[in-house]
Design a binder for these strands. Sequence first.
DNA 1: ACCTGAACACCGTTCAAGT
DNA 2: ACCTGAACACCGTTCAAGT
Lengths: 200, 200
Amino acid sequence: MATRAPRSYHHGNLRAALLERAEGTLRTGGAGRLSLRELARDNGVSHAAPRRHFADKQALLDALAHEGFERLGRELAAASAQAEPAFEARLAAIAHAYVRFATRHAALLELMFAAKHRPGADEGLAAAAERAFAAPRELIADGQATGAVVGGDPERVMLVALAGLQGLVSMANAGMIEEAALDGLVTDAVDHVMLGLRPR
Amino acid sequence: MATRAPRSYHHGNLRAALLERAEGTLRTGGAGRLSLRELARDNGVSHAAPRRHFADKQALLDALAHEGFERLGRELAAASAQAEPAFEARLAAIAHAYVRFATRHAALLELMFAAKHRPGADEGLAAAAERAFAAPRELIADGQATGAVVGGDPERVMLVALAGLQGLVSMANAGMIEEAALDGLVTDAVDHVMLGLRPR
DNA sequence: ACCTGAACACCGTTCAAGT
DNA sequence: ACCTGAACACCGTTCAAGT
């Protein structure tokens, strides 16, 4: 999934146009309703044209997932950078940003993890996923350096903290939580996560 | 999704045979690879035969989900019944049973929640889902009666407790946790959940 | 009551051919 | 370099017809 130079040609930029449309139908109809032929039709191009840009349907899904990880990474990094420098404030900011992404782009997030987890997955995808979580990983490492956070592998500590949020995300995406209540619950969950991170 | 009398006919019991095969491919290949025609072929029956038992593909998926909720309910109830009567023991037993089901039947669980959440979903499905969680709901209500658990809507309290496990489930199903480590992590998570349930 | 066979409108993928 | 058109093997769904 090397970043391809966005050359201009007959259509304009078919690759980007296909991805944009795909993300749209992903949001409205879910991954199941994605059709390469329909995507081609919507872009006024023959059904075989996407082949130039994506070897098969899975390649397009992988590209969507790749873009998703890049976007998530940007949002987590921005949240961390804009927060007050105190550990708790940055952790809360990153947690809220993660839950916001996960609930606003539920189908995309599911696709992202499915693509990354798929046997024989593109290696670039794992790298993109790792980069996406750079901000929380750094925060944990900082917290460990100052003694605010329990020791051990930062990656693992971060995953445990993330797990504390993932339950809320699942419930929200399953419609079990009203959107209005979500922010408050995330704040509670962050307090909970904070307890779990404290050195013992 | 009324329980249909399992009448015998030419094939034997096509409906049950289709569901069994479907759950098999669900486990090995995921929901995406499910094909009604292939299911019919595997059962030595014409591609139109399933139509007698399932109006369309979604109806078969709903039936799978329905069976899944019934099975989950049986396993949670059994875990609760077999545990020591103390609140903590029953909570731990139910939690382990839930995580075991969720990791052993990951694709099915995903299908179950997707089917239940789908707009216009079969009403019998929501009822089956509610029955599936009878054991933990009763446990929470018992805990509230004895003062071991914080007050409020038992359904909501149960969901919050469930959320504490769902993160682990997500991570396990994403391959981020080795199976050997899972039981220990569930035990830790149960302690965590227990803290969250304590009256304030 | 349960199943078959043909038909229709869709897929994803491949490949020669066009510009 | 990028796209088209025809072709192939699959789908899900429908419907008349068989037993």
